[in-house]
Design a protein around this nucleic acid. Structure first.
Lengths: 337, 337
DNA sequence: TATGTAATTGAAAACGTTTCCATTTAAAAT
DNA sequence: ATTTTAAATGGAAACGTTTTCAATTACATA
């Protein structure tokens, strides 16, 4: 393995000058620059990453914490982040927590061990009090997940409003018993959706019925089970707000295997506008998030923090959602005058 | 930031002894070990990753090259790899090439710059001749993608056989004009499927018809376009083998918007047994790959290579597929005697 | 008691860069 | 011709570990 020393020797110059060429710095004559490039080529020289990192105290790497990559929402989020980050010369490393508190802290530890320059959290299972101390070791930015108020920048949607609108839509489609499904780790995001859901319900006087709440729905399989649970225990439910297109798909799939009709017997709302929500029969009413825009903004903020250390902003960027009406909630016939 | 020196000083011992404690090495008395642990705690000491990497010439990190993380097959593959790798104390870094030759080489460069100890390639767009030189810098293992013969371990399915069986199934369901869809970068894997497809067709005498081949189908949107392409230009086609459940889903979705019936007018076979293939109406006949097993085997091999450098094996591990028959190909009524 | 062996400890080198600072060279200004 | 200023270059320190190797201590054996 050739080192910078070898290059310097072959070019008849010093390590310092070679380093200048590597890093595109001024104060090197063109002639010597050429000579050095030639030498690097001849030797097949490649700068050693660990040595650079150690000396310059930078890794040019950002960690992104998320629950699981197989969730298409996070898949798209990280794909967009990676794209944006590479434009700035940063690498992304993917950190799947599977909603484990320990794993989340293990990954935050990357900040302390200087394996990454900053951390983006798209989900959060530990309390903020537990996470805050890691801020000493580098910047943290929240994207998607958020909090009441925190000492870090945040990029997210207004989930309360989104849930409110979706629920209102169910009410307007004459659903009178609406179930609420969430899942995954408890989080502020989930609580906000819950609030939005209740905001809508409180508009109707008929909220004397007992609420049907299910807090264990994450994926298709859960959705399937939820359908059977509802059918057996709460046949009165005629609408369901789920926090995920996958859960919605599971419910609709199982309904298709039984005699229940969607949306006549049960209207279903998903979340995230994943491909699957369009492909289902019937297609699923869902909420679209501006994933790419949020990803881009988040990277932009992180890069700012990294380029100007010390100058930390606590700004929050809130993006708008989009309620997509599809057949899974279309209970009323469109009346033609 | 506390360094190992600070810890040593506080504990009244040498750097060397502290290093021994950090790395769980023998030859430290319990009493001193305690004293050092205490000091590390008091100072909030965390070993600097770059320094360790530089000195020990290991990164405990493996790069995994893939086309895009949003493809569920690769999503699951990498999730499984990550799980297995962390059991061995290795980190995974995700390298999305988007089928770009340049990006693939950029990521292989990680091996040269010593940012990773080894590289797993699950896709390959460059020629092997271009990639081979990187082997000098560390081990490469192929998983999913493969070649005729190479100087690296390979873990994969027999795609030729899988395509053969799927196509045979279409023939047995009385399809007489079967279209072939593939996509993404040209690869050995794709060629193997093509061979399997032809193996099956050559069994029938009726192969006088012109072949319908489409080589630009990767995702749902492509599938949608393919449906319209077939409908307008090749209405005689009554069966289609696609290399992807997503393409299959796109075709089936568009068929649902038109008057074509699946499978009566067009039978469709997908690939990978993704969730979506079960959820479609009708559900899609597909080929299941033992993703987790392949991922586990791949990591196992990589870890072997890393633990015993020099002793490189060129062994190939071939896993079996599973043809899942579903309604998207069920053209014959089951005759009840 | 003397000797050999194994366990424990630390000093210093090494890993391969970048950065600081001093020095030399070239160009411009007087 | 001399001085001033700017550009170009290199020597050596620094980054924070692990590893080598030599030295010391403890313990068992002869």
């Amino acid at each position: 393995m050739a080192t910078i020393e070898d290059v310097a020797k072959l070019a008849g110059l010093s390590r310092t000058t070679v380093s200048r060429v590597i890093n595109d710095q001024p104060y090197v004559t063109d002639e010597k620059r050429q000579r050095i490039m030639q030498a690097m080529n001849d030797l097949g020289y490649v700068p050693n990453s660990s040595a650079r990192r150690l000396r310059s105290q930078r890794t040019d790497t950002i960690a992104v914490i998320l629950p699981r990559i197989t969730n298409p929402f996070f898949g798209l989020l990280i794909e967009s982040m990676e794209e944006k980050a590479s434009e700035w010369g940063y690498q992304i490393i993917v950190c799947q927590t599977h909603d484990s508190k320990k794993k989340e802290l293990d990954y935050l530890q990357l900040l302390r061990t200087k394996q990454v320059d900053g951390v983006i959290m798209t989900s959060k299972v530990n309390d903020w009090e537990t996470i805050e101390p890691y801020l000493e070791s580098g910047p943290i930015v929240l994207c998607n997940e958020y909090m009441e108020s925190a000492s870090v920048p945040m990029v997210h949607m207004n989930h309360r409003k989104a849930a409110y609108e979706a629920t209102l839509h169910l009410i307007e489609e004459d659903c009178s018993n609406i179930a609420y499904v969430c899942g995954g780790a408890e989080s502020h995001l989930t609580r906000e959706r819950w609030r939005g859901f209740n905001d809508a319900l409180s508009l109707t006087a008929s909220s004397t019925n007992e609420q049907v709440i299910i807090d264990w729905g994450i994926n298709v399989k859960d959705g399937q089970e939820i359908f059977h649970y509802l059918k057996e225990n709460h046949p009165e439910v005629d609408g369901v707000f789920t926090g995920s297109d996958e859960v919605a798909a599971g419910i609709i799939y199982e309904a298709g295997q039984s005699e229940w009709r969607i949306p006549e017997d049960l209207a279903v709302v998903g979340f995230d506008n994943q491909m699957i929500s369009m492909l289902m029969v019937p297609p699923v009413t869902t909420i679209e998030q501006p994933v790419k825009e949020m990803a881009a903004k988040t990277i932009e903020i992180m890069v700012q923090e990294l380029h100007h250390p010390g100058v930390r902003s606590f700004q929050t960027y809130i993006f708008d959602h989009h309620l997509l009406l599809r057949d899974s909630t279309k209970r009323k016939q469109v009346s033609v005058q």
